[in-house]
């Protein structure tokens, strides 16, 4: 049974990696045969060779720290603004009715397109990037905080009342703990929203960390370097995404 389970997982993973390797090999061959134009697409072998080069020469680690710092600053602000807003909405049902659909609309709105506006308001610096990321990423935190608090099981609140807890105690000792998994789902969505916006705006305005690196390499026409940097950024985003997923699983299992 155990071996069956393992092969059940192993085979798809192996097939996935094998087909990825096959795709890379096919692209390499097509480029070598000049069926694909090697002047607009680098050889995959060159891209892999470029990874150590950009790590060494392009200060990738410092750039990573810049992007991570912006993301962390945004995250702190998103939580500090989004969670209290969610609590406020949950406590005032009329305000919630009045504004909940606005927050959903804001979540779907292409706020990031307003990045030139933020450049004018804040200057071409990290605070513009952080401000944009925060405004665009607050809605999921607000909505998930409201959902989580509103979904507290009636039984638990009744238990609190049976022990004649005050309203404040019921809120902090019962509703908040039971809402934490949902709130974390919102924070995780907010973090992903923020990371995407931060890297995107860094790329667009050619300022800051990892996003700028791709732009610079592309402008230098360093094809292999550009692709290598893209692979690096995707790896970082995937890592951040997986990490938050683990934390979420850990929180919901408890």
């Amino acid at each position: 049974m155990a071996s069956l389970l393992r092969s059940d997982r192993f085979l798809p993973a192996a097939t996935g990696i094998a087909s990825l390797a096959a795709a890379v090999a096919i692209v390499e061959l097509l480029l070598r045969a000049e069926i694909l134009n090697p002047h607009i697409m680098p050889y995959p072998s060159d891209v892999f060779a470029a990874i150590p080069r950009i790590i060494r020469e392009e200060a990738v680690f410092q750039r990573f720290l810049v992007t991570a710092g912006e993301t962390l600053a945004s995250l702190v602000l998103i939580v500090a603004i989004g969670v209290p807003l969610g609590v406020l909405l949950q406590r005032n049902p009329l305000v919630r009715k009045a504004t909940e659909s606005w927050f959903s609309a804001l979540a779907a709105a292409p706020i990031v397109l307003a990045y030139p506006l933020f450049l004018v308001l804040f200057g071409r610096n990290a605070s513009a990037i952080v401000a944009l990321a925060v405004i665009g990423s607050i809605p999921p935190v607000v909505l998930k905080t409201v959902d989580g608090l509103a979904a507290t099981r009636k039984v638990l609140i009744n238990v609190g009342r049976a022990y004649s807890m005050t309203r404040r105690q019921i809120f902090w000792r019962i509703m908040v703990p039971s809402a934490i998994p949902s709130i974390f789902v919102g924070i995780r969505l907010g973090l992903i929203f923020a990371l995407v916006k931060i890297v995107g705006v860094e790329f667009l305005i050619n300022f800051g960390g990892l996003g700028q690196l791709i732009n610079e390499l592309a402008e230098r026409y360093d094809l292999a370097g550009t692709y290598a940097a893209i692979i690096f950024v995707i790896a970082v985003s995937m890592l951040a995404f997986t990490l938050t997923e683990w934390i979420e699983k850990w929180l919901t299992q408890r």
Partner: peptide
């Protein structure tokens, strides 16, 4: 896992 990565970085390519 690829879904939530920033796609705009592909634009230069």
């Amino acid at each position: 896992y690829f879904g939530p990565t920033p796609k705009i970085i592909f634009f230069s390519v």
